[in-house]
């Protein structure tokens, strides 16, 4: 464990806490894409198949349970909670995310570290996580103004993989047989997708203005 990875995990955790805060405090999920949340649920379920077989550390197991639990809880809330689901606007959350699932799974069948059940599902979860934010970013562009908590949620979610990139650079120079090119390439794509959001977030922060994404 290195400081970059720990910072990344904490930033990821903060993004989830901000999202839970928004949904539970405001009893509203306006501005949140249910499709992105469903994709994250698939990402964590596909990636943590070894949850009960490989014990790495208490930290590792606890964080996996938190990530799986929170993503499924948010999806449940947005679909079934009688108050929250009323604020879900399916007319703006129209990204056909099943194409992302199919495409990433196909890619994982061809590009993986080893052709085994777990490795293919692991690669699938890495590719899917890289594009999982797309429905959310499209929704924000469509809905124009972004409320503070949603903006902070996306900001932290984008920043966490940026810390992981620093972690991979660090591990590349400090560990001899470290090769995580699947994670690295996907992580770069994932972080790049947030580039314009980071730009508009910084501009709104500098001008102390409301975050607005150009449609």
């Amino acid at each position: 464990m290195n400081i970059f990875r720990f910072a990344g995990d904490m930033t990821h955790l903060i993004s989830i806490l901000v999202l839970l805060l928004k949904v539970y405090a405001t009893k509203s999920c306006s501005g949140i894409s249910l499709k992105t949340q469903e994709l994250y649920g698939i990402v964590f379920l596909a990636r943590y198949l070894d949850l009960f077989t490989d014990f790495i550390s208490v930290y590792n197991t606890v964080m996996k349970l938190v990530f799986i639990g929170s993503s499924l809880a948010i999806v449940w809330c947005m679909r079934f909670h009688r108050v929250v689901k009323r604020s879900y606007d399916r007319d703006v959350d129209t990204f056909r995310h099943y194409f992302l699932v199919g495409g990433c799974f196909l890619l994982a069948l061809f590009v993986h570290e080893k052709f085994s059940f777990r490795e293919v599902f692991w690669a699938f979860s890495i590719y899917l996580e890289a594009v999982a934010i797309l429905p959310q970013l499209i929704l924000l562009q469509r809905s124009g103004n972004v409320d503070n908590l949603t903006g902070q949620y996306v900001l932290f979610l984008g920043a966490y993989r940026g810390f992981y990139i620093l972690n991979w650079i660090y591990r590349y120079f400090t560990e001899d047989q470290f090769s995580r090119w699947i994670s690295c390439v996907s992580g770069l794509v994932q972080t790049a997708l947030y580039a314009d959001f980071f730009y508009y977030y910084f501009i709104s922060w500098k001008n102390n203005a409301k975050l607005k994404l150009p449609a």
Binding site: R5, D9, D54, I56, N60, K114, S116, E119
Partner: peptide, 10 residues
Amino acid sequence: VDADSVKDEL
């Protein structure tokens, strides 16, 4: 390293 290497990252 065996490609089924234990994924120690989240």
